[in-house]
Design a protein around this nucleic acid. Structure first.
Length: 526
RNA sequence: GGCGGCGUGGCUCAGUGGUAGAGCAGCGGUCUCAUAAUCCGCUUGUCGUGGGUUCGAUUCCCUCCGCCGCUACCA
């Protein structure tokens, strides 16, 4: 068992708070959360960071539209974001806002260190500036040579002095790192893309802007502010106190075990970020996991096209665990997934209501109905019948492997086929509802086995469906011999020794548990 | 254009040099503890196209068709 001192640092991308999160954002947080919860079960000391990326032009624009000052606006958005994450039972241990002083302090310290090391230089940038947008435009954005948002205005050629980071100096070292650390970029397809990118040659990148009041001033030139990407990436170390008076957390948790990000920002995390760290002489994160996107019935999620779905709507309709289950099971984390309400209802009814919830109902009901919830003498029963032919120790290892690799869909599929289907089949084959009429002891034997299956389910679902898992684990007196807080996968192999008789402790109504996942009637329209 | 990936039953996907599997959906049957759930059985596939290698390819190679990702400095 891993030492409780063994740190595990996991992060998600920080989000632009220029609008509320959509289900794609939620997908990332839930995937990271499953990993965080899993690592806690392994005894790791998990630090799980999330946050918002607030030092951007769009944030100011949005605040201005609403007639607000930037800071109250971003604070309110941070509150709204965290409200969503709380609703989805995301167990982050910190939430950083890049407008916070800890981020400003650490970022200034960092850029100064890179500057002092000679990796930053000043250069004049020339570009097309749109007065309407108060920003530069790329050639690609232009429509008929003009800003798409301000067609009536001419674009101006403007020169500006900015600071640049010598990214080009790091190509060889980056390639060497990819080669010697193949686990640095996952999934593998992303690694190939990044290697390709770096091999094709890196150019120096500008890392500051002139004349912005919102943002982090460059310490060696206060007229400039640190450009968003250089700024944003630093949240991973500023959040844990890099550059502050107390670097205890930084020393404990850095380098991070994994940055969980969307596939669109892989290059920033796998090329720019490690180069920045090299420039500052800091260790690199152990790995970056780039997950896929969620589409709305095959359509890209886009606010302007109206295809964005608010996680809160889904959550309020279906609940936290069904929401989590859908994305963890239906959308392979490393690939793109799809969301549709039809599919949601299908999966909910078949996997959660019919299979998982029903196993719970029928098991508890029989225990209560036949034995008043007390399986007297069951402490001596060794519940091996239900899992005959299955090596749970091996299964625990297999699942451990899958979850470590973010293969949640595969893991859940395995739990369903190996545990839940097996338990339901066991009931059908042993027919405890008939045994009770002929052989009370044999019936009790079967129910004791089912109690163990419920225990195993409670343990295995813990990283994915924490609420449901806890309900399962607390439906019998399992806590008497194994605390809910200290469960790990290996414990599925055998019930704890010295355990008391099984006793139902689940909440009941008229002798039955309430349906955990009430069946949803599929909508008949469309 | 360059690099890479994909194209398998209605849907989502797995898979192997010897002519294919799972889950869901659908259909039929069954038990009755349970959320009309469970359990059992069944149907559907030219494994994108055309070639090649091979005794034999869905699996290896090439052409083509279709789809997708990356192609950095959103200044």
């Amino acid at each position: 068992m891993a030492s409780s001192q063994d740190p595990f640092y996991i992060t998600t991308a920080i989000d632009y708070p220029n609008s509320r999160p959509h289900i794609g954002t939620a997908f990332e947080k839930i995937g990271a959360d499953a990993q965080a919860r899993f690592q806690r079960m392994k005894g790791r000391d998990v630090h799980f960071l999330m946050g918002n990326d607030e030092n951007t032009i769009k944030v100011i624009q949005r605040a201005t539209e609403l007639g607000l000052e930037p800071k109250p606006y971003v604070d309110d958005m941070a509150r709204q974001f965290q409200e969503v994450w709380t609703a989805l039972n995301v167990s982050n241990t910190d939430f950083i806002q890049t407008s916070q002083s800890r981020h400003h302090i650490g970022s200034r310290k960092f850029i100064q260190a890179v500057y002092d090391a000679g990796h930053i230089f000043k250069k004049t940038y020339t570009g097309l500036y749109c007065n309407g947008c108060e920003s530069f435009k790329t050639e690609k954005e232009l429509i008929a040579g003009r800003c798409p948002n301000h067609q009536s205005q001419e674009l101006k050629q403007v020169e500006e002095e900015n600071y640049f980071f010598r990214l080009s100096d790091f190509a060889d070292r980056l390639l060497e790192h990819y080669r010697t650390h193949p686990e640095f970029i996952k999934p593998d397809s992303r690694l190939n893309e990044i290697v390709n990118l770096v091999e094709s040659g890196l150019q120096d990148v500008s890392i500051s802007r002139k004349g912005f009041v919102w943002g982090i001033p460059v310490p060696f030139d206060e007229d400039q502010t640190i450009y968003v990407w250089f700024d944003a990436l630093l949240n991973y170390i500023t959040a844990i106190g890099y550059g502050s008076d107390d670097e205890t957390l930084y020393l404990k948790y850095w380098p991070a075990d994994v940055h969980v990000i969307g596939k669109d920002i892989t290059r920033f995390h796998c090329a720019l970020w490690p180069a920045m760290l090299m420039a500052a002489g800091l260790p690199l994160p152990k790995s970056v996991y780039a997950h896929g996107f969620v589409y709305n019935k095959g359509e890209k999620i886009s606010k302007s096209a109206g295809t964005a779905i608010d996680p809160m709507t889904v959550y309020q309709t279906f609940g936290t665990d069904p929401f989590r289950y859908y994305f963890l099971k239906e959308c392979v984390f490393g690939s793109d997934g799809n969301f549709s309400e039809e599919r949601f209802v299908e999966l909910y009814n078949s996997d959660l209501a019919n299979n998982l919830g029903n196993l719970y109902s029928r098991t508890i009901s029989m225990c209560v109905r036949y034995f008043e919830g007390n399986l007297e003498g069951s402490s001596t029963i060794n519940p091996t019948d239900w899992k005959s032919g299955l090596d749970l120790g091996e299964l625990a290892n297999e699942l451990d492997d899958l979850v470590s690799r973010f293969e949640y869909s595969q893991a859940l599929q395995t739990i369903w086929s190996q545990i839940l289907d097996r338990a339901n089949r066991y009931i059908q084959n042993t027919e405890p509802f008939k045994l009770i009429k002929t052989d009370r002891e044999a019936c009790k034997q079967v129910l004791a086995n089912l109690a163990d299956a419920i225990r195993v389910t409670g343990i295995l679902l813990k990283p994915f469906l924490p609420g449901t898992a806890e309900t399962f684990y607390r439906s019998f007196n399992f806590e008497d011999s194994g605390s809910w807080d200290s469960l790990d996968f290996q414990q599925i192999a055998n019930p704890p020794s010295g355990r008391p008789d099984y006793r139902v402790t689940a909440a009941l109504e008229a002798g039955k548990p309430l349906p955990m996942f009430p069946k949803i009637q599929p909508s008949t329209e469309s």
